[in-house]
């Protein structure tokens, strides 16, 4: 199989994530879409690492995984605090600031 197919897959995943962030309304789902985008970048890193015969890309994906986990923790903490004070995790409800 042609290895560049993985690049197409990564691009497709990234686009799905990017569109999801824009159209979805639940903060948790929006956040899952962001994670999908990060994983798409990871797939691209690993594939390019294979194509270029260079290990750097695989190390990059390690770091991305760790950073993504930290981002999950911080993000969910913010979303849960938000939910506890409003009983809703919809991004549309968070509109006090748009005046």
């Amino acid at each position: 199989m042609d290895i560049s197919n993985y690049i197409y897959l990564s691009a497709i995943l990234f686009v799905i994530g990017a569109i999801g962030v824009v159209v979805r309304r639940n903060a948790i789902v929006v956040f899952m879409c962001v994670e999908l985008m990060l994983n798409a970048a990871n797939l691209a890193f690993v594939t390019f690492s294979r194509i270029n015969g260079d290990l750097g890309g695989q190390i990059a994906s390690f770091f991305t995984m760790v950073v993504a986990a930290c981002e999950v923790v911080v993000g969910l903490a913010i979303i849960v605090t938000m939910y506890r004070s409003r009983r809703s995790a919809s991004v549309d409800d968070a509109s006090l600031l748009q005046r």
Binding site: F14, M37, A41, F48, G57, A60
Partner: peptide, 9 residues
């Protein structure tokens, strides 16, 4: 990150 991946590619 995605931009970085493609610059790496």
């Amino acid at each position: 990150l995605f931009g970085g991946a493609f610059l790496y590619g």
